[in-house]
Amino acid sequence: MDKSELTGCIAFLQEAERLKNVLRSAHTSEGRRESTAEHSWRLALFAMLLEDELPGLDFARILKMCVIHDLGEAIHGDIPAIHQTPGAPDKSAREREDLQTLAAPLPERLRAQLLSLWDEYDNAASPEARIVKGLDKLETMIQHNQGMNPADFDYAFNLGYGTMHTARHPLLAALREMVDEVTRERALGGLRAPR
């Protein structure tokens, strides 16, 4: 890379830092709202733990998708799944547009690679993307079960959340059963948030 391309990379990283300030609806075990960057980090960690259970998949591609899947939220923030209703603005279209804006300083080849990975993820266009989609839903649900949530938190919503994505692989389905069991207990008020 030449100096101008390296400068573009630094400018992109500086803009991507905004993701650290984007808050999601999930709460941490201490009760503060988590950032989208924290969610993306734990999603990548989750995938890393399962690498040996996903033979034949391009694991580097999986990690890259984990890192960038919500990057577009750095500009306009997150829209919680519970607020994504028919007739609402298209979350995917907005995130892709925001990712294009965010990636503008990058050299063309890196910008194209980033957008291609994001499109692959968004469209669940590969086995790797389908795994990341499912793990993304599961990580969110695990956080909801672990978080110190407000008293009116809707645990029942999670029992139907992302089922299409978590049913696409036996490993995801097995994890889903475990997470749903905890969700049901939290919904009934029989389980406190772990510390």
Rank of each mutant, 00 (worst) to 15 (best):
L49P: 03
I82V: 15
H169P: 05
N158F: 14
E51R: 15
W118A: 02
C66W: 02
H144Y: 08
E108I: 10
A125F: 10
R111N: 05
Y155A: 08
Q146F: 05
E53A: 13
N145D: 15
T140R: 04
E108W: 13
Q143N: 10
Y121V: 02
A124G: 10
R96S: 07
D152F: 10
T166Y: 01
V132R: 01
L49M: 14
Q146T: 07
G72L: 00
R130T: 01
L171G: 11
D52R: 10
R109P: 13
S116D: 15
M65R: 01
D78Y: 00
L115V: 08
A81K: 01
P170L: 09
D122Y: 01
E51Q: 14
F46E: 13
A104E: 14
E73R: 00
A156H: 14
D119Q: 14
T140H: 08
A112I: 15
E128R: 07
D98I: 10
R94V: 10
R96K: 14
D70R: 00
A81I: 03
H76G: 04
P86R: 13
Q113M: 14
H76E: 02
D152H: 13
E120R: 11
I68M: 04
M65L: 10
E128M: 04
H76N: 11
I68V: 07
S116T: 15
Q100N: 08
S92T: 06
L102C: 06
L54S: 09
I68H: 03
E53L: 08
Q146I: 04
V132N: 02
H169W: 06
T166M: 06
E128K: 06
G77Q: 05
H69I: 02
D136L: 05
Y161I: 06
F153M: 12
L114P: 03
G134P: 06
D78W: 00
A112P: 07
N123R: 13
V67P: 00
A124T: 05
K64R: 09
A74V: 05
H83I: 08
G77W: 01
G160N: 10
S116R: 15
Q84W: 05
L57C: 08
G134I: 02
R109Q: 13
Y121S: 02
M148H: 10
L159M: 12
Y155M: 13
S126D: 02
L71N: 02
A44D: 04
V132L: 04
F157G: 04
